[in-house]
Design a protein around this nucleic acid. Structure first.
Length: 474
RNA sequence: GGUCUCUUGGCCGAGUGGUUAGGCAGCGGUCUGCAAAACCGUUUACGGCGGUUCAAAUCCGCCAGAGACCUCCA
């Protein structure tokens, strides 16, 4: 049974897409998921990517479990920061955001994050925003101040149910900077914002201006799904006020529940403090790749901790992340080089079944990836034992590799495709190995070691064994 | 000030009433011409103090420390 922690109920709940329990997973309609995406004003940092990786695992796991998914991530391409960035560079907003959107998608690819079904842009969803604002206006929930349009929280009784915030307490919150607001009530939020002359603007029925931050998500969800969605995800920092405001405007406009399950990913910390652009304590993906780290190791490291726990990022941890990966690679190599014919050992079949069961039940329980990885490494140890007892037969290799494929459809770290930085062709390497074998036969150890060092220098590691020498990249 | 979360062995991290998670590092071993790589093994840890219970890392209370949200944020 698949279970998720729902921020709304603060409990772990059975996951039932569509709100109606069915006999079999195949009977459910596609799971509708909306994940808050990036504001494209600069490079995303790996804290951002922790959340996006969480979305990826969620999606991959649901598919692994047999659900169909229909997944959306928005691209916020108009807001204070994007406008400011475009103005300061003297380029159009569109040109500016397109550049960072492209970079964002490249980074997702580097981290082996699957492509989702929809990537709507805020600026392409103005019509849907207009509809919501009109509906709210008809219900008397909005007011205008100059050319800005605000949502009036005092007229909406359900406000605060997600973040469990007491609306009254916001009034007395010490950290509100009242000077920035010209509202009836400090708690109200902008649906539509007045703009200055040099800013880009759009015409909607109630005025000329640009979208408020919260309206785009409500608009896109309505536009794409047209009704209550199953899962809405984001970072914990979005619970309040962003998601709270989405609920208010969507449920008030359409008189139906907005979202069934709210899933929030915790923050990545650096030196025990939140990684964020405003604090300046962040790493981008390219920062780390330039330092020689692989995006595969970064993906692995960011997956090792449960998504609902804060995780302290350190370069030391990242350095240690490549070792377990080479253990995985070694198992794959052992399978791929098997040539032997013969029966499949019962104990290998049983071990595969156990692994799939353990792996699935860990993930069933609110996506416990750490637990699932633990089961995976336990199985690797066992497979290695069986291999040491007797090399895998072709059929054994086939079923193990099949099992690994299945597991990797969730993890995305086993068959992670990465550009190899090896300048030699496979043929060159094979030739070197033959040369070295001959040197070894002649007991010419100096020459043998010279070839070994030469290859190592080019990123190729040689492994001698009874069956001969095999190689792999560093 | 208000709201909430976390504290597990040298390090990282699951578990959440009774069953040795796992990974990294270190150490020991197998293999090897020597290495490397690989593989195997590696003796039970849960912030402190109380309480509940036959039984607590797990539940409750207090204390200490850390972090997040209340403002743009993943």
């Amino acid at each position: 049974m698949v279970k998720f922690y729902n921020t709304m109920s603060k409990k772990i709940e059975e996951f039932i897409p569509g709100g109606e329990k069915k006999e079999s997973i195949n009977d459910y309609p596609p799971v509708s998921i909306y994940s808050c995406g990036p504001t494209v004003y600069g490079f995303a940092h790996i804290g951002n990517f922790r959340t996006f990786l969480f979305n990826d695992i969620l999606r991959r796991f649901l598919k692994f479990r047999g659900f169909k998914v229909n997944h959306t991530m928005n691209i916020t391409d108009v807001d204070d920061k994007t406008i400011k960035g475009a103005l300061s560079e003297g380029v159009s907003l569109k040109e500016y955001t397109a550049r960072f959107t492209d970079i964002f998608f490249e980074d997702l690819k580097k981290l082996n994050i699957e492509e989702f079904e929809h990537y709507p842009r805020a600026t392409d969803s103005i019509d849907a925003m207009n509809e919501i604002i009109n509906r709210l206006e008809k219900k008397g929930l909005v007011y205008k101040d100059n050319n800005s349009i605000y949502f009036s929280i005092s007229k909406y009784s359900d406000y605060g149910k997600l973040s469990k915030i007491d609306p009254e307490s916001i009034k007395s919150g010490t950290r509100y900077d009242t000077d920035e607001y010209h509202k009836d009530d400090i708690r109200d939020f902008a649906l539509w914002k007045e703009i200055s002359k040099e800013e880009p603007g759009w015409q909607i029925d109630l005025g000329y201006g640009r979208p408020g931050w919260h309206i785009e998500c409500s608009a896109m969800i309505r536009k794409i799904y047209n009704t209550t969605i199953d899962i809405h995800t984001g970072g914990v920092d979005l619970v309040f006020p962003h998601h709270e405001n989405e609920i208010a405007q969507s449920e008030a406009a359409f008189d139906e529940p907005f979202v069934r399950y709210w899933l929030h990913a915790e923050h990545l910390l650096v030196d025990n403090s939140k990684m964020s652009k405003s604090k300046g304590n962040f790493y981008t993906l390219n920062d780390l790749i330039e330092q020689g780290f692989s995006s595969r190791a970064i993906r692995y490291l960011l997956l090792t901790a449960h998504y609902r726990k804060q995780f302290n990022f350190t370069l030391d941890n990242l350095k240690n992340a490549s070792q377990p990966l080479s253990r995985i690679d070694n198992l794959v190599l052992n399978c791929e080089k098997s040539q032997k014919s013969g029966e499949i050992r019962e104990l290998i079949k049983d071990r595969i079944d156990k692994l799939i069961n353990d792996f699935t039940s860990s993930l069933d329980n609110d996506l416990n990836v750490s637990g699932a990885l633990g089961h995976f490494f336990e199985a690797i140890t066992d497979f290695n034992k069986y291999y040491t007892e007797s090399n895998f037969t072709l059929e054994e290799s086939r079923i193990i590799l099949e099992c690994l494929q299945k597991i990797d459809s969730v993890l995305g770290i086993i068959f992670f495709k990465e550009e190899k930085k090896v300048s030699l062709s496979e043929q060159d390497i094979e030739d070197y190995i033959i040369k070295r074998d001959n040197a070894k036969k002649d007991k010419n150890w100096d020459e043998a070691d010279r070839i070994r060092d030469l290859l190592l220098d080019k990123g190729v590691v040689l492994e001698d064994s009874k069956e001969g020498t095999r190689w792999k990249t560093v």
